[in-house]
Each structure stands twice: as structure tokens, then as C-alpha cells.
């Protein structure tokens, strides 16, 4: 082989993980916000999270089901730490195995910045519109597997298997 086919995968993976981490802008539309998550997934991608499949319904494909559910995770921050990939002959597809760290916002707010607190800080004009500041927990470990069209363009992810491998002892978040 004259050319390294795995070369563009790194930025693709980073973009994919960034899309899962995108922050909500209080002014924007919630539906549009949710559609950013994993935008490179195909509508019919086979999705398995922590050993449980995302099951599409007649009304919602697997991608949308996933995006809606991801909306109810606290804010995340992923960091890619390792990956490797093989191009499977005759398929035009890569199989990618990656390893990453992920931390969660443990402030008790959801992704949309909604808090469960009934007692509020006295609001001042300055912090009323400011973005919620996340309180990051310790790093969790995840391992991901993807089958991706070799073009790496647009909606190209055929399957995603996302598995948490390590939960830190001081995690406030429950799994």
C-alpha cells in the first residue's frame, strides 16, 4: 500500500466525540441541539451502549432514539487516548477500536442547564444569562467500536458499540 488509509480517522473520531460533548446555548432550539449528537451516525446505525441495544421504533430511527436519550445525560467531556483501525477488504469499511476518557458534569444539572435545586442563589443580572458552569467529576474510561464507511464523510457510521470500562470511586453520577 502506498498510502496510509488510516490517516484521516483521528480527526473524524475527535469530531464524533466532540459532537457528544456539545454544549447547549440557552438561546437555541432543543431539538436542533439534540440533532448535533453523533451527527455522523447513519439513521439506521446499530447502536449498543453499555451492552444494551438502542431499539428503534416505527416513529423514530435508532439515531434519533439515541440522540434523545443522550440529551438526558449530564454534560460530558471526552478525550480520545488511543485508536487503531483496519480496512476490511471488499467492504469499503473501516473497523475502528478506540479508547477514551470521559468526565461528567456532577453539578446536578442536566445538559440543558436545568437544576433540581429548589433553593436558588439570588440571581443577579450578570449570571442570569451566563452558561451553567460544569463541575467535572473524575475521569471514567470507555472503549468504543465503530464500523465506518471509508469515505468518512457525512453520515458514515454503520455501527457503534460504546462501553464504559471504568467508573471512578468518587463518582456522584450513578450508572
Amino acid at each position: 500500500m502506498n498510502q496510509d488509509p488510516t490517516q484521516p480517522i483521528e480527526s473524524f473520531l475527535k469530531n464524533f466525540l466532540n459532537s457528544l460533548d456539545s454544549q447547549y446555548q440557552p438561546t437555541s432550539n432543543v431539538a436542533n441541539y439534540a440533532l448535533q449528537f453523533g451527527s455522523s451516525l447513519k439513521r439506521t446505525s446499530a447502536l449498543i451502549l453499555n451492552g444494551k441495544p438502542i431499539i428503534p421504533t416505527p416513529q423514530e430511527d435508532s439515531k434519533l432514539t439515541f440522540q434523545k436519550k443522550w440529551l438526558s445525560t449530564p454534560l460530558t467531556s471526552h478525550q480520545l487516548t488511543s485508536y487503531d483501525a483496519h480496512l476490511i477488504p471488499g467492504t469499503g469499511q473501516f473497523i475502528i477500536n478506540f479508547s477514551a476518557k470521559v468526565k461528567f458534569d456532577q453539578s446536578g444539572k442536566n445538559r440543558l442547564g436545568e437544576s433540581a435545586d429548589l433553593i436558588k442563589e439570588p440571581t443577579t443580572v450578570t449570571n442570569a444569562n451566563s452558561k451553567p458552569r460544569p463541575i467535572w467529576g473524575s475521569w471514567n474510561g470507555i472503549i468504543g467500536n465503530l464500523v465506518v464507511d471509508e469515505t468518512l464523510q457525512n453520515e458514515c457510521i454503520n455501527s457503534l458499540d460504546y462501553r464504559l470500562t471504568y467508573i471512578p470511586q468518587d463518582s456522584i453520577l450513578k450508572f
Binding site: N50, G108, A116, K174, F175
Partner: peptide, 11 residues
């Protein structure tokens, strides 16, 4: 709800 990862787990 806010402090629970919404995806169940199965080994």
C-alpha cells in the same frame, strides 16, 4: 434523573 447515566448496563 440528572445524576443517573440514562443508559442501562448489561455485561
Amino acid at each position: 434523573m440528572n445524576l443517573t447515566f440514562p443508559f442501562d448496563s448489561n455485561s
